[in-house]
Nucleic acid binder design. Structure first.
Lengths: 203, 203
DNA sequence: GCGCAAAAATACGTGCCACGCATTTTTCTG
DNA sequence: CAGAAAAATGCGTGGCACGTATTTTTGCGC
C-alpha cells in the first residue's frame, strides 16, 4: 500500500474536503454547489461523488480523520500504559494543528469558531458530523477492547469508554465553540476527560 | 394550546412517522418514496414536507420524541430527588411501551431488532437518528443545569451528564440490537447508567 | 523506454427529493 | 355566521445521488 496512486487519491480527497469547507465558510452551505467544489479542485462533478457520497460528507471528512487518528494512536502507543493516560495523551495530540494548516487562511480562532457554528447550524452538516463521530467511536471501542482483552459483543465497558471519550470531546468542543468561557481546548478537553473517567456524582 | 387543531396535527405527524417506519421495514429504505408515505396516510406529498423536512426525519421522529420525554420527565419529577436516581427512573420509564404499540404488528423482538439494524445500516438514517439524539441531549442538559443551578455556557457538568446519559442509552441499545448477550434493555440500561455515573476506571 | 492491464476520471442520462410560491380548503374566533 | 388564520394542496424548479458506458491515466513487468 501507500503507492503513488493512493497518495494522489488521498491528496484529491483532502483537496475536495478542504475546498468544501472553504467555500461553505465563504458563501454559506446552500450557495455552494457540488459543481463548485469540483471546479475548485479541477475535477469533474461526477468524480466528486467517487470520493464522497454526499455533499455533507466532504465537510465531515476532516472531522472523521481527526477522530480516527485518536483510535489509531491508542493502538500504537505503549501497551503497558494505563488506559486513561493513553487516552488523554492521544486526545491532546489531536489538538496539535496538522500539516493542513498551511492551506488555512490566517484568520483568528474567533472567525474559525464562528465558521464552525454556522456550519453546525445546518441540519444536514450536523448530522453528518455526528455520523463521523460515531464511526470513529466504533474504531475507538475496538481499540479499547483489544487493549483490555474484552469482547465488544459481550462487554459494555469498551463501548462505554469510547462513547464517553467522544462525548467529552464533543462537549468540550461545544463549550469552546460557543465561547462562553475563554478557555482553550487544551484546558477544556482534559478537564472533561478527567470528569467522565472519574464519574459524575452530583456535586 | 393543545386545541383540537394541534392534536390533529400531532396525529398526522405520528401517522406519517409510523407509516415511514413500517414501509421502510417492509420494503427497504430506497424502495420507499415520499409519495408512498404520504399516500399511506392519505395526504398530499407536498404536505409531508410541511411536517418533515426530509425523508429520514420522519423515521427519526419517534426516536426524538422518546428521547425528549426523558428530559421532560426530569423536569417534572420531585426536585429534591438525587440527580442520578431521577435520571435512572426517567430512563427506565422510556422503556415502557407507549400507546403507539396498538398499531404495531405483533412481531417478536427479534424481527424488530433486525428491522432496526437494517434501518441503521442506511447512512442517512443513522445520521438523522444521531441528530435527534443530539437535540434531545441539549434539552436534557438544560434540565440538568436548571436542577443543579448551573450555567450551560460556563459549566461542563450539565452537558457532560447529558452526553453521558445519552451515550449510555445508545451503547445499551447497540448491544441489545446486536443481540450478543440475550439481556433485555431493562438490565443493560441501568447497568450502563450506573457505570457512567460511577466512573470508568480501568478494571 | 514500452505497451498492457487495472484503476480512476469523465460524460451522459435518470429519478427522486427539498422547497418556494400561489391557491384552495379547513378550522378557529368573535 | 362571517372573516381571519392556519393548514393542505398543486405546480414548478433546481440540485443531488447514482448507474452505466467510455475515455484517460497510472503502475508495472519485460
Amino acid at each position: 500500500m501507500s503507492g503513488l496512486r493512493e497518495r494522489k487519491k488521498e491528496a484529491t480527497r483532502a483537496a475536495l474536503s478542504w475546498a468544501a469547507v472553504r467555500l461553505t465558510a465563504e458563501r454559506g452551505w446552500s450557495a455552494v454547489k457540488v459543481e463548485d467544489i469540483a471546479a475548485a479542485v479541477g475535477v469533474s462533478p461526477r468524480t466528486y461523488n467517487n470520493y464522497f457520497s454526499s455533499k455533507a460528507e466532504a465537510i465531515a471528512f476532516r472531522h472523521l480523520e481527526r477522530s480516527l487518528r485518536l483510535a489509531a494512536e491508542l493502538r500504537h502507543g505503549p501497551p503497558g500504559e494505563p488506559l486513561w493516560e493513553a487516552i488523554m495523551r492521544a486526545a491532546l495530540r489531536q489538538l496539535e494543528p496538522g500539516p493542513e494548516v498551511e492551506h488555512m487562511p490566517p484568520q483568528g480562532p474567533d472567525e474559525w469558531a464562528a465558521g464552525l457554528r454556522v456550519m453546525l447550524a445546518e441540519p444536514a452538516l450536523e448530522a453528518e458530523m455526528l455520523r463521523a463521530g460515531k464511526i470513529a467511536e466504533k474504531e475507538l471501542a475496538e481499540a479499547i477492547a483489544d487493549r483490555a482483552g474484552m469482547n465488544l459483543g459481550a462487554d459494555l465497558y469498551p463501548r462505554l469508554v469510547a462513547a464517553s471519550v467522544m462525548a467529552a470531546s464533543n462537549v468540550a468542543l461545544e463549550l469552546f465553540v460557543q465561547g462562553g468561557t475563554g478557555e482553550p481546548m487544551e484546558v477544556l478537553l482534559p478537564r472533561a476527560l478527567r470528569m467522565v473517567a472519574a464519574g459524575l456524582p452530583t456535586p
